[in-house]
Structure formats: C-alpha cells, structure tokens
Design a protein around this nucleic acid. Structure first.
Lengths: 237, 237
DNA sequence: ACCTGAACACCGTTCAAGT
DNA sequence: ACCTGAACACCGTTCAAGT
C-alpha cells in the first residue's frame, strides 16, 4: 500500500525472521472475507468453512485468528460500526439535536448497506472499541442538550436501543441480501400484507394501516428518534 | 385431560375415521417440545432433529407441522408473546400511562423467563396474531393519551422497538439458559467489565460507569419507556 | 395423511502432525 | 507460530416408500 510496509512488517523484521510457512492470512483478511460473504450471499453465506474457502485455506486455519464463530460475528459488527460517520456527532453544543439526528441516520444507512451484518446486531453485546466511542460521543451530545450526567447516560442507551432495534427489525423483513429493495417497494409489500386487518377485529390497527406499512420507513425512523429526544430533554433543567 | 377429549377428537370422529398410523404428533406438541428445549438447554438446544428426538419421531416428521426451522422460530416467539398479560393494557382512559408501563414490564418478565426465545425476537418479523393484538391494544392506550391516530400508530411502533430491542440486548449478554442470574449479579458483572474505561480516553463514559452497568436494569427499562412516552405525549394537543 | 428410512450437502470444533 | 489432514458429532432438508 505504501513505500514502507507498515507496522506488521516492521515488527516482523525486527523480532521474528524464521523461514517457516510464511503466514498466508491475518485478522484483517479473515474479517474482509467474512463481511464479503455476508454482503454477497446474505446471512446464510457466512460460515467458518466458507471464510476458509474464500481464503484458500483449511477450515481450522481460521481459528488462528478468531476464537469461535460467535467471536467472529462480534468483530464483524464492530467493523461495520467503525464505518459509521462519527464526525457527525461532534460540533457546536447548540446543534446537539441535529448532530444526533444526522448521525443516527448515517448509522442506519451503513447498516442497511450491510443488511446481513445488521441481522447480527442484537445477538451479542456491542462492546467493541467503536461501540464505546459511539457511546462517548452520544453522551457528549446529550450533555450539550443540558442533561445531567446520569440522565445523559441513560438517554444514550435508550437512543442506541431505539436505533439498532429499529434497523434489526427492518432487515428482519428482508432476505438480508444486498442491495435491499428500495424503501418504497418494501413499504408497498408491507401495505399489501396488512390488507388482512379486519376493522371488525382490530379497528384501530385497520384504520392506521398505511402508517403501519411505513413502520420500516426513514420517516418513522426519524420520527422515533425525535420523539425519544423530546422525552429526554423534557426533564433537562 | 378432561372427560371429553376436546376439539381435536371431536372433529376427528366426525370427518376422518380411517385406520392409518394414527397421528402421534400435532402442532402444539411440536411447539411445546421446541420451547421446552430452549428453556432447558438455551439457544443451542433447539434443532429440528432435537424436537423430533424429544417427540420420539424421525427428524423429517416435524416437517408435517412446520414449514422450516425459521417458521418454527417465528411460531415460538408468537407463542411466548401470547403468554404476556394483555389485560394489563385495558382499563380507564386516564390510566393509559400506567397501563403501558405495567404491560411493558410484564412483557419483559415473560421474555426473561424464556431468554432463549427472547434471543429470537429480532430475527424475524413479529406478525403473528398475538403481535397484532398487542399492537391494537397499545394503539388504544396511546389514543387514550390524546394522540392523533397517525401519531398513536407511529408511537406504538417506537414503543415496541424500545421494549423488544431492550430485552433482546439484555439477553444477548447472557448464555440464554434460564433461570438468568439475578439482575443485581448481572449488573455487577457489567460494572466489573466497565472497569477498563479510562477517563483519559472516554471521560464522559468513565464518569457514568455505574449508570452504564445498569443499562440492563429494570430501572433503565422503566426509565426508557417513560421518557419515550413523555416524548410521545408532548405533541398531543 | 402422516409417518419411516435413507441420503445429500453441509456445519463448528478439536486433535495430531508437519514445517 | 501457523498451517494441513483427518475426524467427531452434529445440522436442515428432500425424496421415495410404506400404511
């Protein structure tokens, strides 16, 4: 990539210079392969054996770099979190709301570009470095909104739950294979599926079919975030 | 179970009375077996083959009653939703808030008693009859709160996302085998895991470690629901 | 209609061995 | 240290056959 080969090569030349089989893999290649599989084939395309196959090694070679399938899945989520535009969260204090709104939109967009990864969102704790950094920045924005530290911390989690929960349920209605159908198409399919709602049995739901069809929409996403923010700031002094 | 054998036997005697192998299974037994496996052995205990084994039949016999493993998972969630105390959602209009708060608490409790089922919450659309009925009743409570129909419909989904998202992330931090460790214990484990937060790197997060440890707590759950409700009613006339 | 029997094409993970 | 080779104990699902 660059004239000098970077950290790994530098460290290697200094400490270890044995003939050996000369490593054919590294952690990055394993993760690239895993995300590539999910992005091309959807949720079912991911397996340790498929990752190994894509890298041209035996299945068990993967275990040199990841402890287990579930550890691999956690790192995949972490890597996609790292793609979100964190810089949207920083800015002048009075603009705390637009910072949060634009960042949550950005995070949703990133996840919708990797729908099969989004399907892994709620299956393991989000405790990687990117998740921690996102938390720190959201916390900062809510402090800028005037919330006391403890309320800002609680609000941070409520917002994260709303955002990742929304996206997880949104992709759960798809096959997880990118690119997803356009939003309008997905809403229309939901609208058709809600045709069954009989006003005699579920009057309120039947009367708001069109809104429920849009539960996966960008409008509903933004609206939910805004309402939650309204509730959070209401109790700021 | 009772002197007369119930619906199935009655229907059977009237319409079909052929010798045959006399069915050894039905849909209910399959679902009972599946939930039983999850409740005893956690998420990994569920497989089509294990369900068959528990019922003493061949693996493929299960396919007479469920179309696929993922269809089975959807029905498992539906069945656990049906265990929630829907009657908590009905009552006098002015008590809309306490109806919503007590129902969401009840739903969380039910799900935490079936943690491996809770792990399936975000992997498929919740479109079963119980989910529809829950939606109808939540919608009613939000109408009682004074929200316009469309806002009530949007609010219903925001609330569902918050509740199921919260529980899914909560159980994702456990092994999914019931009974879960007591909440205080799970919070203490989180507190210990957050010890690494260096104030130099993440000052705001480090300062609110104790709150973040309690992100899986009943207090945080209630607080999140209340703040969202605050945001929802703020725009009611 | 509902089950058995047998097979297909996979899994994650572990262990021993090579270099 | 990092890979190969081989195996263990599983999967979901399909098809043909029995009754």
């Amino acid at each position: 990539m660059s004239p000098v080969e970077g950290d790994a090569a530098a460290a290697g030349s200094a400490s270890r210079r044995r003939p050996g089989p000369r490593r054919s893999l590294d952690r990055t290649k394993v993760l690239d392969a895993a995300v590539g599989l999910l992005d091309e084939g959807g949720p079912e395309a991911l397996s340790i054996r498929a990752v190994a196959g894509r890298l041209g090694v035996n299945p068990n070679a993967v275990y040199t770099y990841v402890a287990s399938r579930s550890a691999l899945e956690r790192e995949i989520v972490e890597r996609v979190f790292a793609e979100s535009e964190l810089e949207l969260l920083t800015g002048p204090a009075p603009r705390w709301r637009s910072r949060l709104v634009s960042y949550t939109r950005s995070l949703r967009s990133v996840l919708l570009r990797h729908p099969a990864v989004a399907g892994l969102l709620m299956t393991a704790p989000m405790d990687g470095p990117s998740a921690v950094l996102i938390g720190e920045r959201v916390l900062g924005a809510l402090r800028d909104a005037g919330l006391a530290p403890d309320d800002a911390a609680r609000g941070t989690y409520a917002l994260i739950v709303q955002v990742v929960g929304f996206v997880a349920l949104e992709v759960a209605e798809t096959d997880g294979r990118p690119p997803l159908a356009p939003e309008a198409e997905r809403i229309a399919a939901r609208r058709a599926a809600l045709e069954f709602l009989d006003p005699a049995d579920w009057p309120l739901s039947a009367a708001t079919r069109d809104v429920a069809a849009g539960w996966i929409s960008t409008d509903q996403f933004d609206w939910s975030v805004e309402r939650l923010l309204d509730g959070l700031v209401q109790r700021a002094g």
